[in-house]
Structures are given as C-alpha cells and as structure tokens.
Simulated scan of single mutants.
Amino acid sequence: MIFRSKAPLRISFAGGGTDVPPYPQERGGAVLSATIDKYAYASLIPGGDGHIEVQSLDYDIVAKYHTDERLPYDGELDLVKAVMRNLGTPSGFRLFMHTDAPPGSGLGTSSTVVVNLIGLFQRWLRKPLVPYEIAQLAYRIERIELGIKGGMQDQYAATFGGFNFIEFLGETVVVNPLRIPRELINELEYRLLLCYTGKTRLSANILDRQISSYQQKKRDVVAALDATKELAFELKRALLTGKLDDFGDLLHQGWEMKKRFDSAITNAQIDTMYAEARKMGALGGKVLGAGGGGYLLLFCPFDRKHLIAERLEQLDGQVVEFSFEQSGVQSWQIGAHVQ
C-alpha cells in the first residue's frame, strides 16, 4: 500500500501573537484564522528491510536511516525524526514530502508539516488519535521537544481546517468552528488579495524579542497584545454579521497594532507595498505570520483588486490565487499499482 496525506496552510486574520507563550497562559489569547487550498503533502511506502529513506523537495534533501538508529536532532529533517520517535517505526519505509509554500512564509508551514506527518503515520499505524490529540502532539513536538519558536494556533488550524475562532485559556485550547455562509466565503475570496513579498523571514528572532518584551512587561507591547486580542473578537463579529468593510478596516487596525510588537515585523519593502495598496483603495491588510517578510494579505474593493495586484507586481511582489479549504488534515491509502 501507499499512504498519502495533506494538511492545509492557514491565513491568520487577527490575534496572532496572543497565542505565543507565556501570554496565553497569563492573560488568555484568541485567534481568528482560516485554512486555504495550499498544502503540505506526504507519501509513505512501507518496506520490510528496516531501511528508511526520506526525500524533502522543499529542502532538496534525501536522507537515509535505519529503524535501529536513535536519530539525533541535528537540524536535518528534525520534524520527521520527532514524529518517528513519538509514533514509532515498526518497519522501514520511503517518505516523500513537499509543500505549496516555502518555510518562513507566514502561512504556518512548519506546523502544518508536523500535523501532516502525524496524520500520515496515524493512517499507516492505525493510531486512534482525535483532532485535539493530533494538534496537541504537533505542538509538543515542534515547540517543546524541538524548541522551535512560535505560537499555538497553527497546529490547530491545520488539524481542524476551515474558519475557526481559537481561544487559548491557560493550558486549555478551545477551537470554535465558524459557520460562514458560502456566499460570504465567495465574497472574501473575490476581495482578498494574497501577495508573496519575495522574502521569507527569520521569525524566531522576532518572536524572541517579542517574548522578552512581554516578559519585561513593556507597557506598549502588552497593550498592543491586549488590543490585538480584542480585535480578534471584533473581527469575528464583523465576519459573522457579514460586515466586510468593517472586516477590512479592522485588518488595518490589527496591522497597526502588530507593528508595535517588534520593529522588525515590517520593513521598507513591506511598508511601500502596503502604502501603495492603501493609496489605491485597499481597506486593510497585514503581513501573515510573525512578520518581516513572507505573504501580505489585503482586503480590496472588488473593482480595485486587479489594479492593486498590478501595482504590487510592479513592486516585485508575486500575487497568488487561493481559495478557502474547509477540511483539515486528510489521509488516505491506495494500492501500489495505482501510481
């Protein structure tokens, strides 16, 4: 048999930063996000000889191991090794992985890769994991076991899929799926513009400084995080009531708050692209993820979107078409003859 899986990347509309410990444990966080039709993919072909071969298209790596080895965390395919350690490898296998967006792009790529691998191994090994357990394991692997800096939202978004309002209440995470009418989703897809700025970012450095500023209780950073959390609730209300112009304006307010977390969240290129988009009619937007590069999301008037897209591409941006994805991580299996 061949086992396959895919998990969707996500767009975070509001609340990002309030899911980064220790803020959610001390003050409670909230994030509004939705998954899109960009994915992390994986295929696994079991083998009986104890040999493991992992091919990552994203990093252009082919690595070979053996099931008897205690694989060290050494910076090479550590996400794969950690999933293998936690879920087991009863036999050898060949694993092929790739994603639709580069690491560091702000779409939650690394967390989605972990969720996807857990979904794949769950299918192969017939592990009875429910969605919350998948997301919790992915968080533990990435943030605690491997020590990769980041928040708590991405693992839950990739696992559950769709539009979600996710609350972080101490050590408890509550995923609230939002029932968004199809016509409203269509309108969002019609008016949202996603543009790759051409640069990935080193989110760990930004997050280190953000965490440090919060732990020092710097007033401006704490106030910005608190305001960002409140905006997540306001954006949810605007979305559920269909007030999309308010939704666009709140995105702008959220971006202004986010820039107060750390000076590296934006740069001259991002500021120029955002200012040009606003000048041409965009109601609001934000850089996705921790900031510093990656994808820029903009909410546009329907009759100005194409003009804004043209201007961003003149500024070396790359506009990317997308739709929303309502499903979370999925896995399936096929006969080896269906290749």
Rank of each mutant, 00 (worst) to 15 (best):
F3G: 12
I11A: 07
I11N: 04
V20A: 03
V20W: 00
P21E: 14
P22C: 07
R27F: 15
G28A: 10
A30Y: 01
T35A: 07
Y39V: 02
A42L: 06
P46C: 11
G50P: 12
G50Q: 12
I52M: 08
E53L: 09
Y59Q: 09
H66F: 13
L71F: 05
E76F: 01
V80W: 09
V80Y: 13
R94P: 00
F96D: 05
P102N: 13
L117T: 01
I134H: 07
Y139D: 05
E142F: 05
G147N: 05
I148C: 01
Q155G: 03
F165R: 05
I166E: 11
E167K: 14
G170F: 12
V173L: 10
R179T: 11
R201V: 06
L202T: 07
L207D: 04
L207P: 01
Y214D: 10
V221G: 11
V221W: 03
A223T: 10
D245K: 15
G254T: 09
I265S: 02
E276S: 14
M280R: 15
G281R: 11
G291E: 11
G293I: 08
K305L: 10
H306R: 13
H306Q: 14
E313F: 04
E321F: 08
G328H: 10
S331W: 09
S331I: 04
Q339Y: 12
